Simulated scan of single mutants.
Amino acid sequence: MNDSTISSTQGKATRADLITAGRKLFATSGFDGTSVRALTTEAGTNLGAITYHFGSKRTLYAAVLEDGLRPLARRVQAAAASDGTARQRMLAVIEAYFEHLAERPDVPRLMLQEVAAGKEPPAVIREIIGTVKETIAGLQDEGVADGSVRPGHPVLTALSIVSQPVYLTLVAPMLRSVGGIDLSDPVTRRMTVEHTLAFVDAALTPRAGA
């Protein structure tokens, strides 16, 4: 292995360490509340590493958001392209959300930080959430056409579908301490997913005689 290969490997490892540190710190303290020193200390690297590898803290933040949201968008699109009626595929989208958020609990916290900031969301969030919205809206149009989904506002439908697993993930500590529901337990999480799917399925099903 030559020097350039070693340097490239080390550089990729440092970038990954900084993104991992950003996932943890940005999710708990937000962008403004997280210092460069805190990030580099958490990543175990030097103060100049963020500038060297990302150019700025803002660019690192965008990379952290993309790291969490891009795989989510891929899972949503895969679920939307699965077999079944449009309503069944919309339910598959919800399940994909649950699985992703169970694996990446930093993602809803990052999203909450953006909501709490009250600012224009970063471009990566607008792009990926826009893709998710269009995917769900397309499924709704298909469902209305094939009779499996009741008509409704596509953006509000998308928000309603997305908010269920996001909300439950955000309130997981309260559910555990107050309701005795531990979403980290696979059996309990499966029960919660099935409950949510049944709830949303009832909302999507066309009304008799409508």
Rank of each mutant, 00 (worst) to 15 (best):
D3N: 13
S4R: 13
S7K: 14
S8E: 13
D17Q: 15
D17G: 14
L18R: 10
I19P: 01
K24R: 14
F26Y: 09
S29Q: 13
D32I: 06
T41D: 12
T41S: 10
E42Y: 02
A43Q: 10
N46C: 05
L47P: 00
A49H: 10
Y52T: 15
Y52C: 09
H53N: 15
H53R: 14
A63F: 03
V64C: 04
G68S: 04
R70G: 03
R70C: 05
V76H: 05
A78G: 06
A79K: 05
A80K: 06
D83Q: 13
R87G: 11
R87M: 12
A92N: 12
A96Q: 06
A102D: 07
R104A: 11
V107M: 03
M111H: 04
V115R: 07
V115Q: 05
A116H: 03
A116L: 15
A117H: 01
K119Q: 13
P121V: 11
P122L: 06
P122G: 08
V124P: 00
R126E: 11
E127I: 11
I129E: 08
G130A: 13
E134A: 15
E134K: 15
A137V: 12
Q140P: 01
A145P: 00
D146A: 13
R150S: 13
P151F: 09
G152A: 15
H153N: 15
P154E: 13
L156A: 15
T157I: 14
Q164P: 00
V166L: 09
L168T: 08
T169F: 00
V171K: 04
P173E: 07
R176K: 14
V178C: 01
G180Q: 03
G180H: 02
D182C: 05
V187Q: 04
R190F: 00
M191H: 06
D201I: 06
A202P: 00
